[in-house]
Simulated scan of single mutants.
Amino acid sequence: MGASVPVTPYLLRERGLPIPEADSKDARGRVLVLAGCLEVPGAILLCAEAALRAGAGKVRIATCRDLAVPVGLALPEARVLALPQTPGGRVAVEAAGTVIEQLRGCDAALLGPGMMDEGDTRDLVRAALADPPAAALVLDAGAMAALAADPGLVRRLERPAVITPHAGEMARLLDAERAAIEADPLAAAREAAERFRTVTVMKGGRTHIVAPDGTAYLHDSGHPGLVTAGSGDTLAGLIAGLLARGAEPCDAALWGVYLHGVAGRRLALGCGGLGFLAREIPAAVPPIIAEVLA
């Protein structure tokens, strides 16, 4: 395998980013966000706002019934769908039909933020993806439990899905020890990309992005402050928003990782290093996109 390609503004500018029509929300794409549970409602807002800040035209949020109204009030830009829920406050597997219907009307979908890594989530995601959707997919957090249970789940997709595991999640995906993943995260990312046919974003102090063909990229210019609650939700939302704009899966992952890292560095300058919040990341992104494309 060749050396990893550094993720730089020059690489991103060379690969490009679709610039939709300025007067059309539809041309900027629709994102479906399937996320949240009663214990982790904030993840919905973090990833949905990030998708909009990345340039998506419209966001549809699908979440458990008890969260729908408060989420809609907190993010008035989004359409919110109230789904059946379990007694424990998770989205129920009975919601799969609604999710499938919504996937048909969207250009990209983000599945899993704020959803617990449990049987209900696994069964819901597997049922929703039984008929491979045309929408470009990002699988994050709880949704990756479905991938671990069914490695062929997204191999049938026309375009590779993007997955965004940290070391603990990657250990579960590959049925390996976390220490082994942390010792060689690039090797783990390569294995996952090949096994699942995904664009694999191996999150960490140095983020490795590996395409299904084995091409590897490295972004090592983030900031320690990004290791904060909800930060991964914003990264997943950025990637989904870029996919909705029309970016190819690998390009969306590269752009998303870079934007996330630069936003973290800039926010750190304003607070002495640590202490900025994940909710502050999305608003920092649009100027960075403009600078790269200038």
Rank of each mutant, 00 (worst) to 15 (best):
G230V: 04
L293N: 13
E169G: 12
G152M: 11
L157K: 09
V292N: 05
V7T: 11
S231H: 02
C250P: 03
R266W: 14
P76F: 04
G142D: 01
G97H: 11
L75G: 09
R159V: 11
L67A: 07
L269A: 15
I181S: 00
L254G: 04
T63S: 06
G55H: 02
L46D: 05
V257Y: 07
G29F: 04
V59D: 01
R159K: 15
D150S: 15
I288C: 06
I61Y: 01
T98N: 02
R178N: 11
L124Q: 02
G273A: 12
I239N: 00
R178W: 02
H208K: 03
T228G: 04
G89T: 07
A247F: 10
Y258A: 06
L157A: 10
L238G: 04
G261W: 06
A145G: 12
F196N: 01
P70E: 13
I100G: 04
Q85Y: 02
H223F: 13
A229W: 01
G57I: 03
T215R: 09
A22L: 13
R265N: 06
P286A: 09
P212K: 01
L139I: 12
R172S: 07
V40A: 11
S24D: 14
P185D: 04
P160M: 05
L254T: 08
G264F: 10
T200C: 15
E182W: 06
G214W: 09
L52S: 09
R60V: 14
V33L: 03
L277W: 11
A192W: 00
V262Y: 05
G222T: 07
G237C: 07
R79Q: 11
R155E: 12
G57N: 02
L45Y: 04
A183G: 08
L269Y: 00
L81Y: 03
E291K: 12
G214V: 01
G256S: 11
G225L: 00
G114W: 01
L186H: 03
G152I: 11
A167T: 06
R13D: 10
A128K: 03
P185N: 09
V59E: 00
V257I: 13
E14V: 04
R126E: 13
A167V: 08
D117P: 00
R79A: 13
L67D: 08
P18Q: 01
R13Y: 12
Q85L: 09
C64N: 02
A130E: 15
D213S: 14
R30F: 11
A145Y: 03
A95G: 12
R53E: 10
A284D: 05
L274Q: 15
H166R: 05
L45I: 13
R104V: 09
R172N: 13
I239Q: 01
V125Y: 04
G36S: 06
L32I: 12
A62V: 07
G152D: 15
G105I: 07
G2E: 14
P113C: 13
W255A: 00
G237Q: 05
P286G: 11
A127F: 13
R266N: 14
R28S: 13
K58I: 13
R122I: 08
A54L: 00
I163M: 05
E118Q: 15
I163T: 08
P113W: 02
L103H: 10
R28K: 15
A136Q: 10
A171I: 10
E182Q: 14
G29T: 08
R79F: 02
G16I: 05
E77D: 14
V201S: 06
M144S: 00
A109T: 09
R206S: 14
R65M: 09
P41Y: 10
E291T: 14
L45A: 09
